[in-house]
Design a protein around this nucleic acid. Sequence first.
DNA 1: ATTCTTGCAAACGGTTTGCACATAC
DNA 2: GTATGTGCAAACCGTTTGCAAGAAT
Lengths: 147, 147
Amino acid sequence: MLSMDQFIQVCREKGLNVTYQRMIIYKYLMQSKEHPTAEDIYRRVKEEYPSISLATVYKTLETLAEHQVITKVTALHDLARYDADTSPHHHLVCIHCRRVQDIYNEELNKLPIDLEAIPDFKVQRYRIEFEGICSQCQANLQKKQRA
Amino acid sequence: MLSMDQFIQVCREKGLNVTYQRMIIYKYLMQSKEHPTAEDIYRRVKEEYPSISLATVYKTLETLAEHQVITKVTALHDLARYDADTSPHHHLVCIHCRRVQDIYNEELNKLPIDLEAIPDFKVQRYRIEFEGICSQCQANLQKKQRA
DNA sequence: ATTCTTGCAAACGGTTTGCACATAC
DNA sequence: GTATGTGCAAACCGTTTGCAAGAAT
């Protein structure tokens, strides 16, 4: 999380123009603890700067995420996906082709943490998402590099 | 994962009519290892039963997920959400109000598993999502129960 | 002066909905 | 026979895009 000065500096380093819109969007996102949606941000930021458009909010968020100044929490979940297997297991998500595979591992089903001890939150289940590159995409990428 | 006979039985128990559409959708979902989208399922199932409609696929998947016969892998990710904090941390997702909070815990950043050893997949990072009920929703639910 | 960004409105695409017909029970 | 589910088309809504005007460098 960056101070406003750091934010400006990072934008400069990455060749992003520093605009008022970008600053207030970042400022609000920084203050928020609840991972707001674009719509949430738009509503709040509009109070301070009524002429801002929703499209700008979307574009700004995507730009900042691309440059890794912020994170898109739901990066890999643009489409609803279903699974006939309701038993406990976790997922390997290919950031390239976006396919989702299962991973079964007993160790992963007993995390080294006391779930009861999380304050103010009653955990019912958890899910681990491993992000990476699947074998098929690894092969394709190597092919491309050689070409 | 259920055999076809078990699937039929479970539907009956839950008061769901057993239709040919539901059976082929479940059959395909069961066979698939890649957590297909509704569109994926529609395309494949249409080959076997060309008159099926996309709306039926959506309705069936939602119905089966509600009754916990299948799982919606991306259940909590209907909207894109952003985070100004790019440091390693995990998420508490309230299944009720859908808010997402952070959880910082060093133990969770070193999982008891050899990430290099996952076959055919190069893991770059992972993210744990704890699903449960946040304190605010716990309070609200208790209020409702008393009423 | 040039390049990047904004704001608007229109388009897009995944998902949901209303309703008449068909099917399961 | 009644309740439930299906298929179609239209609506919906979050998100993206094209483009002309404006701002940052």
